[in-house]
């Protein structure tokens, strides 16, 4: 089922607060997600319209057996992600009440999210008073790296799930218990597909793409780049060795998303980090514009890129 590990998402996510070394050690079992057949659905072409059914009963049928009812069409008219969106709005309210800014960090596996966070916390940790909620399918390795940098971290293991959802974030926030006026970084599961659709209640979505992944990522994973408020191109120190055209990549992103801001940096050498710290401080430098003008904003961000 899942593109990453091939199993279902029914394993319950597990949340581990800090100071629980090795708490993630038990594995999750895959027994439920497999063995289904693919021939179960029929695509029969007959389609009757129900548009003139205007009567609507409330279906709170107390005896629940259904047999005594005539067939009925019940209008629902709701977003399929309505439940997650509602929980995300609750998170947003909770975060606003504490004046906590939550940033949802997303990328492919290995683009450098944890490296960037560790570096950021080491340099700004006390100023931002930041904590981290780490989402991974398994292990608490990333949370351990954050704790080694001296900041609180909560690990959420999604098991078979390939993204964090609003309910998992709520549980992570309960465990992290961030102080007033602080920042919470949410490191989402490394995946450019699924996390794009799930609002967590965050203040901004930050997408990290590394130069070793190829500059065609925006075309391959458009939804992620559409959702982004900030796109970070990481591992700029490797640009001399790889065939990655920053200009081309930024153009592709701009075609999907007229408002995203761009930063090019190296989390390991520290090159370009100052602009990221400025962004975190809420200073929008003249190189990052929110206007939709393709050429203007690109030229400006490209000047910044090199």
């Amino acid at each position: 089922m899942c593109a990453t590990c091939g199993c279902g998402e029914d394993a319950t996510p597990r949340v581990y607060a800090l100071d629980v070394p090795g708490a993630q050690a038990h594995g999750h079992s895959h027994e439920d997600g497999h063995g289904h057949t693919h021939d179960g659905h029929t695509h029969d072409g007959h389609e009757h319209t129900h548009d003139d059914h205007s009567h609507e009963h409330t279906p709170s049928d107390p005896h629940g057996d259904g047999h005594s009812h005539a067939p009925e069409l019940i209008s629902m008219e709701q977003n399929l992600l309505a439940k997650n969106d509602l929980l995300a709005e609750r998170n947003r309210g909770w975060l606003a009440g504490r004046k906590v800014r939550a940033l949802n960090m997303m990328s492919s596996p290995g683009a450098g999210k944890t490296t960037l966070l560790v570096r950021t916390l080491t340099e700004l940790g006390d100023r931002l008073r930041a904590g981290v909620i780490e989402g991974d399918q398994e292990t608490s390795l990333d949370a351990d790296r954050i704790r080694a940098a001296g900041r609180p971290a909560v690990q959420i293991n999604t098991g078979a799930g390939c993204h964090l959802d609003a309910d998992m974030l709520r549980r992570g926030l309960d465990a992290l218990d961030p102080p007033m006026d602080s920042t919470v970084f949410i490191e989402n599961v490394g995946n450019l597909v699924c996390p794009a659709l799930f609002d967590l209640g965050e203040a901004a979505k930050v997408v990290v793409v590394s130069v070793t992944e190829g500059d065609d990522k925006p075309q391959k994973y458009p939804h992620m780049f559409i959702a982004a408020d900030l796109v970070i191109i990481n591992k700029s120190d490797l640009l001399p060795y790889v065939d990655f055209d920053v200009d081309e990549c930024l153009h592709r992103i701009r075609h999907l998303n007229a408002h995203a801001q761009f930063l090019v940096l190296s989390a390991t050498t520290g090159d370009g980090l100052a602009a990221w710290f400025d962004w975190l401080d809420g200073r929008t430098s003249p190189t990052e514009t929110r206007t939709g003008s393709l050429t203007g904003s690109l030229e400006e961000s490209l000047t910044d890129a090199h």
Binding site: G64, G66, I74, M76, L80, L81, A82, G161
Partner: peptide, 18 residues
């Protein structure tokens, strides 16, 4: 799959045991 799960939850909420 998680979208389908929330779809099913929403339908069950509304239709009871029918």
């Amino acid at each position: 799959l998680s979208i389908v799960q929330s779809l099913i939850d929403a339908v069950l909420d509304r239709t009871g045991g029918r």
